[in-house]
Amino acid sequence: MFEIVLILIAPLVGGLMHGSQRVIRARMQNRQGPPLLQPFYDMYKLMDKRAFIVHPYHTILGILHFLTLWLVVALIILGTNLLYVIFLHLLATVFIVLAGFSVKSVFSHLGANRELLSLLAYEPIFIFLATGFYLFFGTYDISVIRENSTAIMTLPLLFIAFLLTIPLKLKLSPFDACEAHQEIVGGVEVEYSGVYFEFLYMAKWLEYIFVFSLLTLFAGDSILFAIALVAVVFLVANIVDNSTARVNIQETVKFLLIWGFGLSILNIIGLSFV
C-alpha cells in the first residue's frame, strides 16, 4: 500500500525537488527566486494554454517517454531487478530520442543526438553499478539491497562514478549539453507546447526520483544515511551547477567514459582481489 502511494506521488516529489532546486539556485545567486511550488504553478498555467502539436507521433512518443519513466520509477520503488530497471530506462530514452528526431527541427535533432551520445556516457556506468551490487549481494534485487547494510565501503569508486553521471541525467552544468537552453533552446523539448509539454516536464521530475532512488541504494538499510546522502548530493550538485560552465557533449562523453567508466571498471576488478 505504502509503495503504491509512493509511486503515485513520485512525480510530485520530483516536482518539489525541482522547485527546491530553483530556490537553492536563486539563493546562491543572491536572488529571491521563485516560490517552492513554482513548478506546480507552471503546470497549472500550461494547462490553460492552447496546445499546438507538430504531428501526433511526436506527441505520442513524448507521452510514452513519460509513462515508461514512471514505470521505471515504480519498479525501483517496488524493489525489483536493478539491471532490468536500467534497461527499461533505456527504452524510455529511446522514446524521447525518436520523438526528437521525428520533427524537422534543428534544435530538436541536435538535442536528440546529444541525448543519444550521452547514453554512451552514463549507460555503461549504470550497468556496472548493477554489476557491482550483484557481486556484493549476489542478486540484482533492489529490495535485497535495501534490506542489507550499506555497500558504499566496498563500492567507493562506483559511488564516485555514479555521482559523476548525476549532472548529466538531471541536465545540470557542466553536463547539460543535451538541453542547453541558451544554445539549442531546450533540445528535444522545443517542439512541445501546452498540456503536452507537461508530460516532458513531469518526465524531468521523474528523472530526479530515478537518479536519487538509485543513489539511496548506496545507503543500504539506513534511512538516515539515505536522507543525508540525498541532501548532501543534491546540495553539491547544485553548487557544481552554479559554479561551472557547460562543456560540450564530446567532452562530456570523453570525461565520463574515462573517469566514470574507468573508476567503475577499477572498482569491479578490485572486488575480485578482496
Binding site: H55, Y57, V97, L98, F101, V103, K104, L116, P124
Partner: peptide, 23 residues
C-alpha cells in the same frame, strides 16, 4: 557493455533518420 551501447546508438541513429516526418 560499451559495445552494446554503441550498437544501440547505431540502431537508433538509423531508425530516427527514417522516422523524420513532414508536418
Amino acid at each position: 557493455v560499451l559495445g552494446s551501447v554503441v550498437l544501440a546508438i547505431l540502431y537508433f541513429k538509423v531508425t530516427s533518420k527514417l522516422f523524420t516526418k513532414e508536418v
